[in-house]
Design a protein around this nucleic acid. Structure first.
Lengths: 156, 156
DNA sequence: AATGTTAATGACAACCATTATCATTAAATA
DNA sequence: TATTTAATGATAATGGTTGTCATTAACATT
């Protein structure tokens, strides 16, 4: 799963360099893991995946890098109510494209959906504009999640 | 702030009784606190407020009751990214009415807004219907939050 | 009002995701 | 290759939340 050539995409290196950061093996491995899954991974999930190839990379490092990547906007952190955060590459860096989440409250399975975005975009634009003006808030983000019970969980 | 008569609204007692639950002093005090604030309180906030009048009510009891009230649908639990959950009475039991949240990412101030709900309701209905059908999910809830920087935080 | 049943409590320990500390290592640059 | 300092890894600490268990008190029944 990780890039065995040890280089990683060129643009990535640039991205880090120009911020005064370095491209390190753990950082690259973490991005690799995030880039090669459709799942929503916890810090520990990522740690375990990375650990297979680089057994000396520690959990602390994973947390540190995730925090940094979130701050850089390359990774997004989600809370699905499971007691631990989940991470995924942000829209610009993942193949998934813009999507939102549908979360099962029982098994915490998460479905990405990107249908129904037309209404949503309109609604979001309106609301963000209105709220920004009225409450003098500089809105940078939104979180839209639907919760429910998935098919599997509803039949047991 | 708590009802000194020690009775509380009648309908509440009924609500609990018919589920096999009991109306206890801690439970009542917690509901009282939640019913008499416009703030979004953490478990500890509630504990401290309750503690003033009933110093022997413990934090564990607060957590236990909150969990139970959330399961009953009387209280809603929110995560604003602060590292601890916040609680408020659900729409049906609070004077606030249906609203959503605008959260400052720096100071975690939360603004309730109920403007712009017209678009939202339409959008939500559409999306929920579509998602339910397509993904065979029984949708029960949604979470809509806007994040940004409040005026105060942006000028310092 | 007294009693019995059992939901609920309170004190404390345990849990577990996340963060802080700090000596050591290794990217990037010259 | 040497220098600088960002980044690492091991470990301890933090802090919100949950589990345990003996005790208490709501409520229905008598």
């Amino acid at each position: 799963m990780p890039n065995k050539d040890g280089a990683g995409p060129r643009w990535m290196h640039g991205k880090f360099k120009c911020c005064g950061y370095r491209m390190t093996k753990p950082r690259e491995a973490i991005l690799d893991v995030l880039g090669n899954t459709q799942e929503h991974l916890s810090a520990e999930d990522i740690y375990l995946a990375v650990h297979k190839f680089y057994p000396n990379i520690g959990l602390t490092t994973v947390y540190r890098n995730l925090e940094m990547l979130v701050n850089m906007g390359m990774v997004v952190k989600f809370d699905f109510g499971e007691g631990r955060s989940k991470y995924e590459l942000s829209d610009n860096y993942s193949g998934k494209g813009h999507h939102h989440h549908l979360v099962c409250k029982k098994c915490y399975k998460v479905i990405d959906y990107s249908d129904f975005m037309k209404d949503e975009v309109k609604f979001l634009k309106n609301t963000e504009d209105g709220l920004s003006k009225k409450y003098e808030f500089n809105i940078t983000d939104h979180l839209i999640q639907f919760f429910g019970i998935c098919k599997k969980c509803s039949t047991k």
